[in-house]
């Protein structure tokens, strides 16, 4: 029996197939309006990549904002539990994990067994999220990938509010129209710093213990991760595919259930 984990996020849906020897396949698809169809698309794609047919026995666990609406999953688990399991699988030394998703951020602390000690969510405001960064990239008329590269070249950071996405946007516009305009890379570094300051204050609510890992789509932004490292004063671990960690955690839980003889 194969273990399938599905994480239905607000922008993308991730799926992971876990075999006895590790990850067989993983995929990321765009989430559409229907949670069920996004989950099915992700499942079909990951099965295809793994060369596993739907006829094979599958035990699936779903998570994420749409996780509860996936009718074919045997168990629905919260994102925090799945993140903890996923990160312990990929980076066993991680004790603090920062998940930066499209519309929310979560920080969890785990013990050596991968069990959660504490967690904190930020999901009430756009500031400090992936969607905010997308919006800023659009405003600067560059891609998010370019943002990451330019940020690494910045020599200093423009002052951008970390409190409110709306204020931050008007500050960016003001920097662009300044005479002379603030250099693009400094504005971007400032935007990243505003996101990081939100994340750091979130981390401080539950305490920071090393090693620290950053996961979620925003973790692909090297420029932003560098600023987190500067603020924390030590290196941060980023797994190869940081977006799939929660889906992987769901698959790990699915496998645990298979081992317990559940069906």
């Amino acid at each position: 029996m194969k273990a399938l984990g599905i994480d239905v996020g607000s922008l993308t849906t991730k799926a992971v197939i876990l075999g006895n020897d590790g990850i067989l396949a993983s995929c990321i698809v765009h989430s559409d309006d229907e949670v069920e169809s996004s989950a099915k698309t992700a499942m079909e794609e990951v099965l295809n990549l793994a060369g596993v047919s739907l006829n094979n026995d599958l035990y699936s666990v779903s998570t994420g904002v749409g996780g509860k609406s996936v009718s074919f999953s045997y168990k629905k688990k919260t994102i925090t539990t799945c993140l903890a399991r996923g990160i312990s699988y990929l980076v066993p030394s991680a004790r603090t994990t920062i998940d930066m998703g499209a519309e929310s951020s979560t920080v969890i602390r785990v013990n050596e067994r991968g069990h959660i000690i504490d967690w904190v969510n930020h999901d009430k405001c756009a500031a400090g999220t992936g969607v905010f960064l997308q919006q800023m990239a659009k405003l600067m008329q560059i891609s998010t990938e370019e943002m990451s590269k330019l940020s690494l070249q910045a020599k200093s950071k423009a002052d951008i509010s970390g409190t409110c996405a709306v204020f931050a946007e008007s500050e960016v516009i003001s920097h662009v129209h300044r005479d002379p305009p603030t250099p693009k890379e400094e504005i971007i570094a400032g935007i990243h710093f505003s996101v990081v300051s939100r994340i750091i204050s979130l981390c401080k609510r539950i305490g920071i213990e090393r090693d620290v890992a950053v996961v979620g789509g925003v973790a692909l932004n090297r420029g932003l991760v560098k600023i987190i490292e500067e603020e924390m004063g030590f290196g941060i671990l980023v797994p190869d595919r940081p977006q799939i960690v929660a889906a992987l955690g769901a698959a790990v839980i699915a496998r645990e259930n298979i081992e317990k003889g559940a069906k």
């Binding site: 919260t78 994102i79 539990t81 903890a84 069990h115 959660i116 969510n121």
Partner: peptide, 14 residues
């Protein structure tokens, strides 16, 4: 509900 479910999962895990 979301917060409590997360907490109950945490307790279950322990």
């Amino acid at each position: 509900r979301d917060k409590l479910e997360q907490f109950f999962e945490l307790l279950e895990d322990r």
